[in-house]
């Protein structure tokens, strides 16, 4: 399958920018506009992949139905121009670092166990899930990942609970 690099990179960049816009928009309607563009560029990426019906469906359902519904809901409660505030900078930095670290750990795990191949993961899951008798034995390396995920959840939750004390709320 051939793709034009410029169009792919442009669509991916716009998608990531609109995604960041949803997270960091200072007002509610700006976040909604960013969400609309996120749906639009998701549809464009799906269209580039040849999934035309999915692209149209995503854009229709997300961009033309969900976004107006959320906007009308906000309009109804007079909060469409609501100033949005993020958590404290400490929380943002810590969350980003923890996510990056665990993303890195996950990538390293895939590299070590599955030779950086997603197909190996699917083959592994397919083969081992059919082997019902010794499935628990084969699943052994995955317990490390599960423990790490639970640890991450506990750490993030704890940090957020501590840093939330004493902050005043935006809305």
């Amino acid at each position: 399958m051939e793709f034009e690099p410029v169009s792919f990179y442009l669509a991916a960049l716009m998608l990531l920018c609109s995604t960041a816009g949803v997270i960091f928009a200072p007002r509610m309607f700006l976040a909604l506009i960013s969400l609309f563009f996120a749906f639009l560029f998701t549809g464009i990426l799906c269209f580039m992949l040849g999934a035309k019906f999915i692209a149209i469906f995503v854009f229709l359902l997300g961009g033309l139905v969900l976004c107006p519904v959320i906007f009308l809901l906000m309009k109804k409660i007079n909060r469409w121009n609501l100033p949005l505030k993020l958590s404290g900078i400490f929380k943002i930095v810590v969350s980003s670092v923890v996510l990056a670290v665990f993303g890195g750990v996950g990538c390293l795990f895939i590299r070590e166990e599955f030779s950086s191949s997603l197909f190996n993961i699917f083959n592994y899951v397919t083969e081992k899930s059919q082997d019902s008798l010794t499935f628990s034995g084969h699943i052994f390396p995955l317990h490390i990942v599960l423990i790490l995920v639970f640890c991450a959840v506990v750490v993030i939750k704890g940090i957020l609970a501590v840093s939330a004390d004493g902050e005043d709320c935006g809305d």
Partner: peptide, 18 residues
Amino acid sequence: LGIIISRNLLRIIMSMLL
């Protein structure tokens, strides 16, 4: 990241959509 750092429920919903 948006789900973690947002304080507004609607923005959390939008992050889930992303």
